[in-house]
Amino acid sequence: MAPDPSRLGEVEQLVLLAVLRLDSAAYAVPIRNLIAGQAGLGLSRGSIYITLDRLEKKGLVESWFSEPTGEPGGKARRLFRIRPAGVAALRAARRAVDKLSAGTVLARKT
């Protein structure tokens, strides 16, 4: 059974959001930093890579190789950008959260 592309896991959702925010300059390092900084979630490098891999297989993001540069490392890098299906998936996930949380008060019960 192929993974259902319309369902997003939490990590997938975070990575996808990060890709969206980073626009067309998304790659593993800033994605990881963004998730760590904004969501306070420290993900391993491997998790980022494999999640990106899977998102691409689901057709939610697309990747291409940058030009090799003389920078540190100097090699071609895989850059990511979100596809319309990814935006739709994020929207669906948001809607699900919104619907479920509608009318609830997120306060600690005393």
Partner: peptide
């Protein structure tokens, strides 16, 4: 060591991420 860890994740999958993502073993 980081490269090894990344390689392990990419090759062997990350059960925690995949479980979270799909609700079943990838």
């Amino acid at each position: 060591w980081q490269i090894l860890r990344v390689a392990a994740r990419l090759r062997f999958g990350d059960s925690s991420v995949t479980r979270a993502a799909s609700g079943r073993r990838f």
